[in-house]
């Protein structure tokens, strides 16, 4: 009798559980604009496969953090990784969702994609305004056999606060002590020189329009707009070309295991094949969410996307997370994201 009642109870709980999970029909998220195309692509496929919708507002990383703090969304998305102390204070967990790269692009008559090579010091000096002409001996020395004009360099950068700028300035601060000292890093900085374009498209249009420009944009954007990307010397001293493979290499060489809350900058990554300005974009959720079913659904969405969405990411020039990293994230979830003391997600 008791066993019968127990099993009945168990069945009821199971039914309730199923009904509970099925209750979630829409997940909501807000934040970074950079991953918006891939999130919407994943969302479309996920909706077809499971019937669950994702409503993602690409309002900017800062906005994403604000929205999740105000608990108006199920997850926040930020290009800027939040510091573990900050996450601790907010009671939130953070994990990467997808990766991308930032690449310098140039417009010099006669120079094609990946023809120009720059090393750390030259790139920093151009953005510091210390190298002002394209035929500067330092640039010529790196590019033997390339005809460089005696033209003023027009430096282009973002005028709006942006995660792309955060990645780029983080890289410059790592490779140039002078940059770190005088300018620093962040979503917006006090640029020593240059024109400010609004958004990737603003920078790209300046670079396309003006002869003798150098700017920086997201890799996906450079590729779609066929901008002349630049080869950069990486931490191993090799010239790297921006690609999904070189970005993935940077991620593979990174020490994720020892990075608390995946707080890690992929810039200037070790490895001969690594692209030096790679970055992950992050998802932020509450560690003990009030509405557990919603958070659980969000985690399931990302889990599904990593499993089934790698190809979609590559088509859009994003770099999917390495398998090993996905495993680490799942372990992190089990350990950190709890619903009434139980791990919010079981694989």
């Amino acid at each position: 009798m008791t066993t019968f009642r127990m099993s009945l109870l168990a069945a009821a709980v199971m039914v309730a559980g199923v009904a509970h999970a099925a209750d979630v029909t829409t997940i909501s998220g807000a934040g970074a604009t950079f991953p918006y195309p891939i999130y919407s692509k994943w969302a479309e496929a996920y909706n077809k496969a499971t019937g669950v919708k994702l409503n993602y507002q690409s309002i900017g990383s800062g906005g994403g953090v604000k929205q999740i703090t105000a608990k108006t969304v199920d997850f926040g998305a930020s290009d800027d990784a939040l510091k573990p102390e900050k996450l601790e204070e907010l009671g939130m967990a953070q994990f990467p969702a997808v990766m991308g790269a930032v690449v310098p692009v140039v417009n010099i008559a006669g120079i094609t994609a990946n023809q120009m090579k720059l090393d750390q010091a030259t790139l920093a000096d151009i953005y510091l305004g210390k190298i002002t002409k394209w035929n500067d001996p330092k640039i010529v020395a790196l590019n033997p056999g390339v005809a460089l004009p005696e033209k003023l360099i027009t430096v282009v950068r973002r005028s709006d606060g942006s995660g792309t700028t955060a990645m780029f300035t983080n890289y410059l601060a790592k490779i140039s002590p002078e940059w770190k000292e005088t300018v620093g890093e962040g979503k917006a900085v006090k640029w020593p020189v240059g024109l400010g374009g609004k958004g990737n498209e603003g920078v790209a249009s300046y670079v396309k329009q003006i002869d003798g420009t150098i700017g920086y944009v997201e890799f996906a954007y450079a590729k779609q707009n066929k901008l002349s990307t630049v080869q950069l010397k990486n931490a191993a001293g090799e010239f790297a070309t921006v690609s999904a493979a070189s970005t993935a290499a940077a991620a593979a060489h990174a020490d994720w295991k020892n990075a608390k809350d995946f707080y890690l900058f992929l810039t200037d990554a070790p490895g001969a094949d690594s692209w030096p300005i790679a970055a992950q974009t992050n998802i932020i959720v509450y560690k003990e969410p009030e509405n557990c079913a919603q958070t659980e659904a969000a985690l399931k969405f990302f889990n599904w996307s990593w499993k089934n969405g790698a190809k979609m990411a590559e088509e859009l020039e994003y770099v999917p997370l390495p398998k090993e990293l996905v495993g680490q994230i799942q372990a992190y979830w089990n350990e950190n994201i709890k619903c009434e003391g139980v791990a919010a997600i079981t694989k």
Binding site: G63, S159, G161, S162, A188, K190, G194, G197, K198
Partner: peptide, 30 residues
């Protein structure tokens, strides 16, 4: 206008205006 936060002495230098500055930075500022 070029959205440069520094003030150039020449009219041919890029500059910025209050409205342009607001439009550019409001989104990600805190």
């Amino acid at each position: 206008i070029g959205n440069a936060s520094q003030l150039g002495s020449s009219l041919l230098d890029p500059g910025t205006t209050i409205a342009a500055k607001l439009a550019n930075e409001f989104n990600e500022a805190d």
